[in-house]
Design a protein around this nucleic acid. Structure first.
Lengths: 344, 344
DNA sequence: TTGAAAGCGATACCAT
DNA sequence: ATGGTATCGCTTTCAA
């Protein structure tokens, strides 16, 4: 009593029979290809609706050699970076009828191979490789894979196509912002040296300061990405030093570090941003907006990156060859009270 | 020079030709069905490997009427709950060659319909519906859809199959833990009343306390899920009251609330857990583990939930009819310093 | 043990 | 403007 019309199980032949035409004609109507009389078209359309006809994508794929689906391989179990990216990705691709297979390959090495094999059997039109660690690729062997592939966030091989946020631009945005609000002694506290993004942001911090001829003593402070490290680093910068030696702003490599920093300053009765302004990176809403004071940050525009990945992959599938190497997408400054104060 | 053998584009006929047998025989070998001589089998297997033959899943699907893929519809752009669930889901399903289409339908209402249509055209064998708001379903019209469907996290219709964490169990775990460490005046600060999970956790808090004959004054404090609310609620509980009126523990409806709480206590010089123990909910690692002190919490075991969703859906696809209504999966207590102190 | 042939559902070419 | 038919790659009887 639930299957009026067989819901979605009707074939093109059912429609053809219902109208009294051939399957070829129905196909033409459904794809708006070839000449069909207005009358026939209307009848076919009506029957299709009536029967809840939905063309079988498998059959179509078999015939056209295009599956209208792509695979996304990621080792990001946590999703802080992946999901916003996926949101943009699926949004961009669905417009062209493309669906995205998600494969989370956080686990034994063979898991990646298994997923990849499944995707290849399903004849995905394209592949996206994205990693949790922005600098290290998920562990998959792509040897011999001829499917168009885009690397997102994590960096693919030199002859591959990679899309990633413009880390240097983001860092420059942060530092320029601090300079604009009048800060001159801008410290940098960030993640491990082995992270490519940490080095890129640090370089950009240094370059931007140098371009303005500002405070150049001291180096970037490298630790992990955590709140705890922010806290510790703040102590390094402040404790046992005269206030005249303090920075008047800190650019942090992650929002978590920024939070720890703010925390430590508060404990010491240092006003943020009055005495020291703080800006983070990632614009991890739920953290940054909830901080006290709310933490200014740099947004990597991951959804937009995802959309761009979709566009690029689509073009590759269509036969184009986008620039190899890494294409950088701009970041955005999100000012909050930790730099501009409560007044705005 | 990269396509030795045409990488993954070889057909069953290519293999058959290479060996000098029929496609039927190759098929039998590949599927371990029918009788084939050991000799032939070996030759076929070898040729298949040689040619990097990968059966075309589209053709197989067309023939078997099974696509070996399922669709996951979610409106969780943020991913805090979705991704751990997906990780478990894909892990559980890939073992059976099943891949998961991810559809993020956070956007205009028609987006859901578009995605659903794409999935139906692709003849997914099953559907998973999961929401950001645990109590409200993503906005999709499933009328007339006959594909096996499982609801995860968010609750489906009464005659549907839903899998969700056992909120009451989780809350009971938290409260029992507090009681075990000797607390007797256990407050509860949680999210909005309109959230089903908020009400369930609050009820369980009340019931567990009542069962022990403990402090029953006061009601659960409902606000939003944020750190800010935790901070405010702490003020309610503490400010202007004699210390003898203070709770000696607070069970928080989210880790964020717990963080705000800890923060407020610290500002007031109240020792956690010395004077007041705090426990959160969600076990959002990156927040809870980084808190000062690290926040005890309740883990909803989302990856396991995902695996179970996979199993259930598989059974439904196989024709079984699992119990309708909601099946609850147990939570786990994750004790940290905010309840048991630094010593352990 | 092996193979020939009929589909699965849709598309596209070529007639009509 | 329509329709017959071969075809996509694989599975599955049914014969041989």
């Amino acid at each position: 009593m639930q299957d009026q019309g067989g819901s979605g199980r009707a074939t093109i032949r059912d429609v053809a029979n219902a109208v009294g035409v051939s399957t070829a004609t129905v196909s033409k109507v459904m794809n708006a290809t070839g000449r069909v009389s207005a009358e026939t078209r209307k009848a076919v359309l009506e029957a299709a609706r009536e029967l809840d006809f939905r063309p079988n994508a498998m059959a179509r794929a078999l015939q056209s050699n295009r599956s209208s689906s792509v695979g996304l391989l990621t080792d990001d179990t946590y999703g802080r970076f992946s999901l916003p990216l996926m949101a943009g990705l699926t949004e961009g691709l669905i417009a062209q009828g493309m669906s995205v297979f998600l494969c989370v390959i956080d686990g034994p090495k063979e898991l990646g191979a298994t997923h990849l094999d499944a995707l290849l059997q399903k004849r995905v039109d394209g592949l996206i490789i994205s990693g949790r660690r922005v600098d290290r690729l998920p562990d998959i062997d792509l040897t011999g894979v001829t499917v168009p592939t885009v690397y997102a966030l994590s960096h693919g091989p030199a002859d591959g196509v990679t899309l990633a946020p413009d880390e240097r631009h983001g860092a420059a945005l942060a530092v320029s912002h601090l300079i604009e609000i009048g800060r001159r002694r801008i410290a940098h506290v960030t993640g491990p040296r082995r992270f490519r993004v940490a080095m890129e942001r640090a370089e950009s911090w240094r370059d931007t300061l140098a371009a303005e001829g500002l405070w150049k003593e001291g180096e970037a402070l490298h630790g992990d990405w955590s709140q705890g490290w922010g806290h510790t680093a703040a102590a390094h910068l402040i404790d046992g030093r005269p206030a005249s030696d303090w920075p008047d702003a800190v650019f942090c490599g992650s929002d978590q570090i920024g939070l720890g920093m703010i925390d430590a300053f508060r404990e010491r009765g240092i006003d943020v941003p009055g005495q020291i302004a703080v800006i983070g990176f990632d614009n991890w809403q739920v953290l940054a907006a909830q901080a006290r004071p709310p933490l200014s940050s740099i947004d990597m525009n991951l959804p937009e990156l995802g959309r761009e990945v979709g566009r690029t992959l689509t073009r590759m599938i269509a036969g184009e060859s986008p620039a190899t190497g890494t294409t950088r997408l701009p970041c955005t400054l999100v000012p909050r009270a930790s730099t501009i104060g409560p007044a705005g």
